[in-house]
């Protein structure tokens, strides 16, 4: 299928970049010129060929570099991957979901062979060839969730369901938008979303929870979230805030185009069959402002969204202090022309 993996870094010299093809398939999250929180969930059904929705789990040119970055984060701080003792079965469910999806969707990259509970997994890009016994942790080098999420892009959390609530009780979180798994693990749905402004008052979380409690196996859903990140840093963790926080004070009119990134999370939700838990993959896509404005519709629209965003949201997302500089930069790419509905780029 001709996927070439970039050699790039998400730290230090920050050599991360998007190819022109990666820019065109970027999941731009705004389908209109303004933004407010909503439940905005839709069925996670296969999308058009080439888009990030084509497959259940998208594998793109950043795969190997993202997995290298994850390994570095875990070596620094093993608490980024945790699973409370009762969540092991959900971890196996997740392993099965990812392995089956990838082997089906990318047969030239991944293979899964099953003989009863004896499984054989091949991950060609990462040069992994592993035989193991499904549901037997002793046959894998890590627990099932950690094993498979060291081979899958994006963060993952697992939610147990009980007492008409969801409980975040396992996760692999190394590409997060400033929240701590170590602190939040064990919380209920409204608790771990507590710091989000405005959305509680709008009833967003009540509706979302009610919906998710009824989520069915085989009928996953998806939604977007987004924020801004200075430099292509996947690991914007609260743990390391003193390390990356100062970069927020370094944005100037001269560097905003090359250092400010739109950070989009494609979040999907899957009911897991054996554990009745819910898997929540949070896939992070980064794009530099000067890459993004090569799509004229997105440059126009991002300017309007950022300019008009309520101050609470810009503060919560951490870019209020740089908003004026960002808006000035983006304004150069907004000629005032109307934008077409939906997020897709206009045909060239």
């Amino acid at each position: 299928m001709g996927l070439t993996f970039n050699t790039e870094t998400f730290r230090g010299d920050f050599t991360f970049h998007n190819s022109p093809a990666a820019i065109r398939r970027f999941p731009f999250p705004f389908d209109r010129d303004d933004y407010m929180y909503s439940v905005n969930m839709e069925p996670h059904v296969p999308g058009p060929k080439g888009t990030v929705f084509e497959h259940n789990f998208d594998v793109d040119e950043h795969y190997l570099s993202e997995m290298r970055d994850r390994a570095l984060v875990l070596a620094e701080d093993p608490l980024r991957c945790q699973s409370l003792p009762h969540m092991t079965l959900a971890g196996w469910d997740l392993l099965e979901l990812i392995m089956e999806s990838k082997a089906r969707d990318y047969p030239d990259l991944f293979e899964l062979h099953k003989n009863g509970n004896r499984w054989h997994w091949i991950n060609r890009p990462m040069q992994i060839d592993q035989s193991f016994t499904f549901l037997d942790e002793t046959t894998l080098p890590y627990g099932p969730m950690e094993y498979i999420t060291r081979q899958a892009q994006g963060d993952f959390t697992l939610q147990d369901q009980r007492d008409d609530n969801l409980w975040i009780e396992a996760g692999m979180v190394t590409t997060q938008a400033d929240w701590s798994l170590d602190f939040d693990i064990g919380m209920g749905f409204h608790e771990w979303h507590a710091p989000v402004p405005k959305a509680h008052e709008l009833g967003v979380f009540d509706r979302a929870l009610k919906f998710l409690l009824k989520l069915q196996h085989g009928a996953p859903v998806r939604r977007f979230n987004w924020t801004m990140t200075v430099d292509p840093l996947l690991d914007t963790s609260p743990e390391n805030y003193p390390v990356w926080g100062p970069t927020r004070a370094m944005i100037t009119p001269g560097n905003v185009g090359s250092r400010m990134h739109l950070r989009v999370e494609l979040q999907t939700l899957h009911r897991l069959p054996r554990s009745n838990a819910i898997a929540f993959p949070i896939r992070c896509y980064l794009i530099r402002f000067d890459e993004l404005v090569t799509i004229p519709k997105w440059g126009r629209r991002l300017h309007r969204v950022i300019r008009d965003l309520p101050v609470e949201l810009a503060t919560y997302k951490g870019f209020e202090r740089n908003r004026a500089t960002m808006v000035d930069y983006l304004a150069r790419f907004d000629d005032g022309a109307p934008t077409s509905p939906g997020w897709m780029p206009d045909p060239e």
Binding site: M41, E42, P43, L215, Q216, G218, A219, V221
Partner: peptide
């Protein structure tokens, strides 16, 4: 929003 999983 639909929660319908495929029937068997």
């Amino acid at each position: 929003m639909s929660v319908g999983a495929p029937k068997i």
